[in-house]
Amino acid sequence: MIKVDKVSKTYGNHKALDNLCMEVLSGEIYGLLGANGAGKSTTLNMLLGFTSPDSGSIKILNSRTNKIIEKSQIGYIAENVNLYPYLTGIENLDYFCRIADIILDYNTLTDFLVECGLEKEFHSKRVSEYSKGMRQKVGISIALAKNAKVYLLDEPASGLDPVASNELSQILKKLSSKGATILMASHDIFRVRETCDKIGILRKGCLIKEMKSNEVTSKELENIYLTYMQA
């Protein structure tokens, strides 16, 4: 469960978040839509414990953020997954698992990469030879291998081809069905509508609209989004 309660954050003269309130329940996928600078990354950074709110409170799994115990229960996928270029895909996955105290055998590591859509022939190639999409797939496998209770995703489908993007949606749905809490920040209205249970639109640090995805079509969502963005 993620609960953001009346959170505000200001950087200099810029108000990044303004009294933000939102809640993501266990087993729910929440899509956070918003233009650049709307406050999506600030929200994720706070949830990850990288910055603290000026006011308000954040709770993840009923405890405050920035504690090791919570980190072990958080999976994170960045917009641009940058891995160690001198390691192979499987070595990167192994390394990021090891530092999280997760020791997996070679076959399990391979299975995670395959599950995330990375073909076997690339597993033993150095990441310096990977495309952005391939790196993204390794990034997703790192988050998955953690078997976390909460997933924070910042444009996770960035760089993925439509097939891989669809596979990611399926993976996220599978995770939520197992009780995981997922918050996904994105620009991709279609993908959010397809994947998420609940959608929030963020503008200038304020949550201006919240809706259930099954209550709107993609076209309606696009219209709502554009209307609020232009308002």
Binding site: G75, Y84, A100, K146
Partner: peptide
């Protein structure tokens, strides 16, 4: 600058 730091921290390292 590469963004790996966030991933390392999320994985539980201080």
């Amino acid at each position: 600058s590469s963004g790996r730091l966030k991933l390392l921290l999320v994985q539980g390292l201080s």
